[in-house]
Simulated assay, not measured.
Amino acid sequence: MLEHGGNLREAQRRYGGDAWIDLSTGINPIGYPAPPLPPDAWRRLPEADPALIDAACAWYGARALLPVAGTQAAIQALPRLRRPSRVTVAAPSYAEHAQHWSQHGHALRQIGYPMLEAAVGSSDVVVVCNPNNPTGERVAPSLLLRWAAELGARGGWLVVDEAFGDTASALSVAAHAGMPGLVVLRSIGKFFGLAGLRLGFVAAETSLLAALADMLGPWTVSGPAQHVALAALRDTDWQAAAQARLARDGARLRGLLAAHGIQASGTPLFHWWPEPHAEEFHEHMARRAIWVRLFPQAARGIRMGLPDRKQDWDRIEHALQEWN
């Protein structure tokens, strides 16, 4: 199993202490306040709620969506819906994509974002995170749609993971996901700060959504998760306030890093930079009970999410001063 952020228990086991600041994910640190559950939420089987689909389609601008138990469920299932294919995954990116496309007889290659355009012609499937996790790299929607049309014309797929797309709605191609070959993944967990719900959505042709639904089986999303997500997707006032706060705090974190000589890229939810002393920086922060995400391999660098309290901002700034 691959390592991911959010493993705070591992940090506590290794370094001790309990006053930790977890910056190892890109999850909104001030998540949507979950409403009370209806009395029968735990008793009823979680049949699909059409109102949830309607609200999600309105938020993402998609014509048809399939709710799934987090985008992870779709990432694991999609490679099983194709015969062995030539698959190109943009790198570095969310490692689960390459992990699962490397299985089931597919021929996998991972290439950098600047080389994706040249790879489309020799691929059956192209997978790209937009904006990218962890680097924040972006691909213009017009380019993605051109790739999707080229791949779809010969039975291929363009899989666009928009898990961090809620703060960059102009990048989204979810509204076009009815076209052949285009598959878009969206997540409730990041912007809404509801990762524990394990809820995401897939936008694609209806035939592909039906095949994916058959593979995943019934009752994949719990009733409580649907209830909370429906409230979050309908709450336009909260969404607008969250967008403004995340834009402000993302700019603040970027400025704080720059003030200490770190030029980072990313999104309002996280920042990433190549760090030649990545292991040492990670250790330095961990010794101060600040948990950041270490990328020790080819994408050698650090990803840092947002804190939510003034005292946490102060501790981060002090730790950066000591690093310098």
Rank of each mutant, 00 (worst) to 15 (best):
A91L: 12
W147N: 09
D161N: 15
S172K: 07
G112N: 11
Y94K: 12
T88V: 14
E162P: 03
G178F: 05
G165W: 03
M115F: 13
G152Y: 09
P134I: 09
W101I: 06
G200Y: 03
T167S: 12
A95M: 11
P180C: 10
S187H: 01
R146F: 11
E162D: 04
F164A: 14
H100S: 11
P141I: 07
K190W: 00
I188F: 03
F192Y: 10
L197N: 03
M115P: 00
L194W: 06
A170K: 07
P134V: 05
L199N: 02
H100Q: 12
P92K: 15
A170S: 12
M179K: 14
R138T: 04
H97N: 06
A195K: 11
A195P: 00
I111W: 11
S122K: 15
G105L: 06
Y94E: 02
A118T: 06
V125F: 12
G189I: 02
P180A: 11
Q103H: 11
V128N: 13
L185C: 10
R109G: 09
A195G: 09
E150H: 14
T167R: 07
T167N: 05
S102E: 07
G196P: 00
G178C: 04
H176W: 03
P180E: 02
D161C: 13
L197G: 04
W157F: 12
A107I: 03
P131T: 04
G165K: 05
H106C: 10
Y113D: 05
G178N: 01
M179W: 10
G156Q: 07
A98I: 03
V126N: 12
L182V: 03
W157L: 14
G112Y: 07
N133T: 06
G121E: 08
A148D: 02
V139T: 12
S187V: 02
V120E: 05
L185E: 04
V160T: 06
L199T: 02
G152D: 03
S93G: 12
V126E: 06
P141A: 15
D124G: 15
P114W: 14
Q99A: 15
Q99C: 13
L171T: 01
R138S: 09
E162Y: 04
A153D: 01
P180F: 13
R186N: 02
